[in-house]
Write a protein that binds this DNA or RNA. Structure first.
Length: 727
RNA sequence: GCGCCCGUAGCUCAGCGGAUAGAGCGCUUGCCUCCGGAGCAAGAGGCCAGAGGUUCGAGUCCUCUCGGGCGUACCA
């Protein structure tokens, strides 16, 4: 195929030289029509313009004309000249008589070179079958690339957001490898950080030794403990924020607040706090926790608020917009729901929660002091999470050459911070080391802003660790390029990290690159572990695999049981991965379980099905890639059908698609490719009988079927999707 | 404020500066005695958010406007 392209390019270049044009790059692309196999160039358009302008120039007709006027003058003659030039080029290419070219035509100003498919199909199919799983791969490139992805946090759950990351990271690694790069896949486990401290605080304080008996259940349970810690620690703020929200947007609430608080006051609550609440709420101002004196007041006030909200739901009044007031963000029902959620813990949490943040700080100090008992607890619980992660990575087909852990780079990070401070790149501001990047770069507009690189108590931040990690990737592993697959919200952050390292004189930071992608959302909105609405990977996987089993039972009940189970996994995981990849990285993925459970249409099973059909045809014929490879001599399709030509063109396109997907970091291109190829195969086997055809067509079509199957399997493999031979 | 991203069919999305802007879902109508109907064929459905510009040629590149999302000092 590469040969066909090269010969077309040479033939056009020769034709242009013959016509007296200087050497120039010529665009070549597939002829974009169904049932064609060949290449087209639009060279005549550029030449037409060039020629006409030159002629006008020589005749002095452009003098005194503006560019616009010159263009208008030239327009008509350009339009006339283009088809003429195209015809001249086509005639010369045809005259050269290349046996690979079936026809050379000038159409609409394009020069279309159609291949003599019979002449090169054998070469193409031979290349595909011979290279097998390596078909499509590029020549080795002497550049090593580290692709960091997956980065789950221990002590937290692995949800659908992490799924996009892992699937994307795996695919990008595969694609770069296939393109010829030397790729190292790296994971970076978030095994330390504030979330771990919070989780362990909550565990020790409220749930010690309540963990499930089975080791494999503990990771998830730990995630729940983390979520609880967050809810506990934010409780006071959540309550006060909610009151402020009511004050801002619930007119009825504000109207009755005076009466509500007087009632409370009569019940004997402290007057000072009540006066404070009244003032803040009637003026819709934030309520400051530290100004509340009596921890009894809010819990006593809460039921009264609930009564009011219930009354508002029971007897809704129309919302009256007020000039200058913001629209309400919550309906009365939502407000009541929110109130109920907070009420659940009010009595138990409100008072004690005052001291919780200090307790967490003390827990962090135990980590910082590397207190043996605490470190042992950390190690044990960390492993609970890791057990689950390893299983998930195995299921996803994610393998790693390098495992980084945040806990390993803390010290090294501190070292870099010290150095940055000594060199005056970092400074102490508001009590903590930061780098004022814009200032250092002399930028007046806020661009890179300021990044804290260590907490004021000396404990490490994410940034502390990433400074060290970046250096390690280049120095310890000697990679030429390092890519971080991390969602788009961290874009500024990574620019800051890399810029700081550059300021520090670490030149290789220029070869560090954040590969960002958009978020996964739910139909009902943003995924939030605080709202507890993050669908967990394991749950989604179970649901999708169960659905796949049902469909197999329905479509192919004769399959033996273990095959059924394998296929259910291939289809379910394939479908899930495909959905994550078949959307550009710049687009938000809306994850809808209902959609994920449908295997119709533009989805992995469509492509897997085409692969299975191809496999079945070959099985019926008793042919394999090897046996067909031996029969390629004198391969003869007879009169080629449009569907066959389209399929050949599709198979031939894989190597270029891989190169482009690698250059642009876009697995989407591969998802589009395999879908398109599956579609073409579908067209082919509906239009062209294979097994019933007379020889030599039969063998030719079998060979084409085998090559298609290979290209489909290789394309899917790049996406981390398995292609079953039956389903 | 500043920065990044998105805006294409009812919905979800493709679309390498090039030929008649395409898929899937949903809707309407056909197709299993025929290599497997997880499929195929046909139909309806578009001022490519808007305005300028660059170009022989713009959904695609540039500028601006509008609408939406995200980020913006001790979370990761």
């Amino acid at each position: 195929m590469a040969r066909g392209e090269q010969q077309a390019a040479e033939a056009i270049a020769a034709a242009l030289a013959d016509l007296g044009f200087s050497a120039r790059p010529v665009d070549l692309r597939p002829i974009p029509f169904e049932g064609t196999w060949g290449l087209a160039t639009s060279a005549a358009y550029a030449l037409g313009n060039e020629v006409v302008m030159r002629e006008l120039e020589e005749r002095g007709q452009l003098e005194g004309l503006s560019k616009k006027e010159a263009k208008t003058l030239a327009g008509a003659s350009v339009r006339e000249r283009v088809p003429v030039l195209a015809r001249q080029i086509a005639e010369r290419v045809a005259a050269a008589g290349n046996p690979l070219f079936g026809s050379v035509e000038a159409v609409n100003g394009y020069v279309n070179i159609a291949f003599d498919a019979n002449a090169i199909a054998a070469a193409l199919i031979g290349e595909v079958l011979e290279r097998g799983s390596r078909y499509g791969q590029g020549a080795p490139i002497a550049e090593s690339v580290m692709v960091e992805h997956s980065q789950p946090n221990t002590h937290k759950d692995f949800h659908v957001g992490h799924l996009r990351n892992s699937v994307l990271g795996v695919a990008i690694g595969n694609i770069l490898r296939a393109a010829g790069y030397e790729v190292k896949d790296a994971n970076y486990i978030g095994d330390i950080g504030m979330h771990v401290i919070k989780c362990l605080w909550c565990y020790e304080r409220f749930h010690k030794r309540e963990e499930p008996a089975r080791l494999e259940d503990r990771g998830r349970w730990l995630g729940e403990v983390y979520a609880e810690s967050d809810a506990r620690l934010n409780f006071r703020k959540d309550v006060l924020d909610f009151l402020q929200l009511l004050a801002r947007e619930d007119q009825q609430f504000v109207a009755t607040i005076d009466r509500m608080l007087k009632y409370l006051w009569r019940k004997g609550a402290e007057g000072e706090d009540i006066a404070y609440l009244l003032g803040r709420i009637t003026h819709a101002q934030p309520i400051k926790d530290e100004l509340l004196r009596d921890d009894e007041v809010i819990p006593r006030f809460w039921p009264i608020v609930g009564d009011q909200l219930r009354a508002e739901v029971a007897a809704p009044r129309p919302y009256v917009p007020v000039e200058g007031e913001p629209e309400p963000t919550m309906t009365p029902e939502e407000r009541l729901e929110r109130w109920e959620a907070l009420a659940e813990h009010m009595d138990e949490w409100w008072g004690p929660s005052r001291g919780w943040r200090d307790e967490v700080r003390a827990t962090l100090a135990r980590w910082e002091a590397q207190e043996p008992e605490f470190v042992a607890l950390w190690e044990e619980t960390r492993e609970w999470s890791m057990v689950g992660f390893r299983r998930i990575f195995e299921e996803l087909g994610a393998t790693f050459d390098v495992w980084f852990y945040e806990s390993e780079v803390e010290e090294e990070g501190r070292q870099i911070v010290r150095d940055l401070l000594e060199q005056g790149i970092a400074e102490i501001s508001e009590g903590l080391p930061v780098v004022k990047i814009d200032e250092k770069l002399g930028l007046s507009e806020p661009t890179y802003r300021t990044l804290p690189i260590l907490r004021s108590d000396g404990s490490t931040l994410y940034s502390t660790k990433d400074l060290a990690l970046t250096r390690r990737k280049f120095e310890e592993f000697g990679v030429d390029r390092a890519i971080w697959v991390v969602d788009v919200r961290q874009s500024l952050y990574f620019q800051q990290i890399f810029k700081i390292l550059e300021l520090w004189g670490f030149e290789q930071a220029r070869r560090a690159q954040h590969l960002d992608y958009e978020m996964v959302r739910l139909p009902e909105g943003v995924i939030s572990s605080r709202k507890g609405n993050a669908p967990l990977y394991v749950d989604i996987r179970d649901a999708v695999v169960a659905r796949a089993r049902e469909i197999i039972e329905e479509k192919n009940p004769e399959l033996d049981a273990t095959r059924k189970e394998d296929v259910a996994w291939d289809v379910a995981l394939g479908s899930l991965k495909y959905a994550m990849l078949a959307r550009d990285t710049s687009k938000v993925v809306v994850f809808d379980l209902e959609e994920a459970l449908s295997f119709d249409g533009h989805a992995a099973p469509y492509i897997q099905y085409a692969h299975a059909r191809a496999s079945r045809i070959l099985e019926h014929a008793g042919e394999t890639d090897e046996s067909l490879l031996a029969q390629l001599e004198g391969l003869d399709f007879g009169a080629l059908q449009p569907e066959e030509l389209g399929l050949l063109q599709g198979i031939a396109a894989l190597p270029d698609e891989i190169q482009r997907a690698a250059a642009e970091y876009r697995p989407l291109l591969i998802t589009s490719y395999v879908y398109e190829l599956a579609k073409r195969f579908n067209d082919f086997y509906h239009a062209c009988p294979v097994l019933q055809s007379p020889e030599p067509t039969r063998t030719a079509r079998l060979a084409l079927t085998a090559a298609t199957r290979r290209a489909l399997a290789n394309g899917l493999a790049l996406l981390g999707i398995d292609a079953p031979e039956e389903m």
